[in-house]
């Protein structure tokens, strides 16, 4: 897939809570094709401590509005700076990068998308894509508490949504892997993105139950295009670049101790 470096313009910067914000960006020509699971490397040119671009998952592409959504968590100086960006500001992106979640085979009808924290970001685009292709995706989203559950109304457009919160303020109390839907319903395929301990727990559940599972990793990156070899994940086939050979991996290829 062809990669681009473009200046996009911010059309909205919505504060979702103290930690998360949603940036909507547009381009003066048609946005390039992007796949669920891909990411953008965002240039932050006004933070003295932020030297490298920031890899951010593509949350959603609104083709009608020619809008690209980035769901961002305030983690360090760079993303804190981004949270303050006003409408109309230009943001330089290198995108779309990385592979994508693999296409779902027609015989895998029961598909579960598990997202945790900011890891829900690629699940929205993936869910929309699956729905468009005629599947009925089921979402299982986890967060610390109700206020950390993001974009719920967007998710419900594309499928049934189940939630867990650590404090029980929304959905079932506990972690995603403890949700009752996992025992009530049988799934053929799981896609997951979120904190590594969560993804490992999901991978463990999937392995024990013989369910095919793909996880999207977020190792620290520099270039994002496979040149620097910094973001490698140790796989059964040696070190692989998360930026070009990932970020999505089939869990059976990873060397996770699960």
């Amino acid at each position: 897939m062809k990669k681009y470096m473009h200046d996009l313009v911010i059309t909205a910067n919505e504060k979702l809570n103290n930690q998360y914000f949603l940036l909507k960006l547009t381009l003066n020509s048609t946005l390039p094709d992007m796949l669920p699971g891909q990411f953008a490397e965002v240039l932050i040119d006004d933070s003295p401590t932020t030297f490298l671009r920031r890899p951010i998952s593509i949350n959603y592409v609104d083709k009608q509005k020619n809008e690209l959504w980035l769901l961002v968590q305030k983690v360090g100086d760079g993303t804190i700076k981004m949270a303050e960006y006003p409408i109309g500001k230009t943001l330089n992106l290198v995108y779309p990068l990385g592979n994508s979640f693999s296409n779902l085979l027609p015989n895998k009808k029961n598909v579960l998308l598990i997202g945790g924290g900011v890891g829900i970001a690629p699940m929205l685009m993936l869910g929309a894509d699956l729905k468009e292709k005629g599947f009925e995706p089921v979402f299982l989203l986890g967060a610390r508490s109700e206020k950390d559950l993001l974009e719920l109304t967007d998710f419900t457009q594309y499928g049934q949504v189940f939630t867990t919160t650590e404090d029980g303020s929304h959905g079932e109390k506990g972690y995603v892997t403890q949700h009752s839907i996992l025992t009530k319903q049988k799934f053929d395929k799981i896609y997951t993105c979120g904190p590594t301990p969560m993804m490992k727990a999901v991978a463990s559940y999937a392995t024990k139950n013989g369910i095919e599972c793909e996880a999207s990793l977020e190792n620290m990156m520099a270039c994002g295009i496979g040149a620097c070899l910094c973001c490698v994940e140790d796989t059964k086939d040696g070190h692989k670049c998360v930026c070009t050979e990932g970020p999505v991996f089939n869990i059976k290829d990873l060397k996770w101790q699960i």
Binding site: P48, T49, T50, F51, L52, N219, M220, M221, A222, C228, L229, C230, C231, V232, E233, D234, H239
Partner: peptide, 18 residues
């Protein structure tokens, strides 16, 4: 090469240990 992590961002630069 070396195990992950192999990179650290620093003020106006980066460290690598590929």
């Amino acid at each position: 090469g070396n195990p992950y992590p192999r990179m650290a961002e620093t003020p106006s630069g980066m460290l690598n240990a590929v």
